[in-house]
């Protein structure tokens, strides 16, 4: 079984990078109650991929503009700015804005891909093909993940303050809007790169479930980040073990393992009684 899984070692390594990065950033996503911002950004990213495929299929060779990654990145980062600024103004309930973006971006992605040349073949782009991750993809993920995680390590204090108590942070001179934008930007960046191989649902899973596991089990912020990262990695390894030898969909298997870890964490919390 190990040899069979190791046949997909590049996909495994790439998935681990995506999982751990999303798992760590997911702690902020869950704590700030912006879980569906992650989902909406993922849908925007997939709509960007669909738009690129449509343009390319129509023979509109616009260089980088028709690269799936470029458009996915552009739409995701625009979304990150939109949600980052929107969370300050709140002209309509923030969850409603997120819901509108999620639904419209999801539908537009499907419509665009339906009209793209060989659209069905590209369907994998929207749903992800985690076993298709190559060594090159993995290195690309590493190039994105390392600076993002470094920035989060360095500016942990700032992210914590503007997330936990923005009003007081503002009175101390912290530029809350700028820090929010920076946080959303890093989340959007990671999602845009991850979405092409992992797909919307798996990326959403990595952003939410490992963080929930961490928050249920750990007693401090450092412990929460640690457990979230480890839970994300276990979900990937467990998902590969569950799926590859038995010819099951790997993304769904990873999500199933993530769900089991959440349940296990919930039981631990109940037994511990705190």
């Amino acid at each position: 079984m190990v040899e069979l899984i190791l046949l997909f070692r590049d996909a495994l390594y790439g998935s681990l990078v995506i999982a751990v990065t999303c798992g760590l950033l997911g702690v902020w996503v869950v704590l700030r109650r912006i879980v569906f911002v992650g989902a909406a950004l993922a849908q925007l990213s997939s709509a960007g991929i669909a738009l690129a495929l449509l343009l390319a299929g129509a023979g509109l060779g616009l260089g980088l503009a028709t690269e799936p990654l470029t458009l996915a990145l552009a739409l995701t980062l625009l979304g990150a700015v939109f949600f980052g600024v929107g969370s300050q103004r709140q002209l309509v309930p923030p969850d409603a804005t997120i819901g509108v973006t999620y639904a419209v971006a999801g539908a537009v992605g499907v419509l665009l891909i339906a009209k793209a040349a060989a659209g069905e073949a590209h369907d994998l782009y929207l749903h992800g093909n985690i076993l298709g991750l190559t060594r090159q993809d993995t290195w690309l993920e590493v190039v994105v993940a390392v600076p993002v995680l470094l920035a989060h390590a360095v500016f942990y204090k700032e992210f914590l303050f503007v997330s936990f108590d923005p009003e007081t942070a503002r009175t101390q001179g912290f530029r809350v809007l700028r820090w929010n934008l920076f946080l959303y930007f890093t989340i959007g960046l990671v999602i845009a790169f991850a979405i092409q191989s992992a797909g919307v649902l798996v990326v959403f899973n990595f952003l939410v479930l490992p963080a929930v596991t961490g928050l249920l089990v750990a007693r401090g912020m450092a412990g929460t980040f640690l457990v979230a990262g480890v839970a994300a990695a276990i979900a990937v390894v467990g998902g590969f073990i569950m799926s590859v030898p038995f010819d099951l969909p790997t993304g769904s298997a990873i999500i199933a393992v993530s769900g089991l870890l959440v349940m296990l964490a919930w039981v631990i919390r109940r037994v511990r009684g705190d």
Partner: peptide, 26 residues
């Protein structure tokens, strides 16, 4: 205004009152 679900100790919260003196990224 304070979200009590953050896994923070009381000391962590009080320390936030020093954040503006500590400096960026420190």
């Amino acid at each position: 205004q304070i979200d009590s679900r953050y896994p923070l100790q009381v000391l962590d919260v009080v320390l936030m009152g020093r954040y503006h003196r500590i400096g960026l990224g420190r």
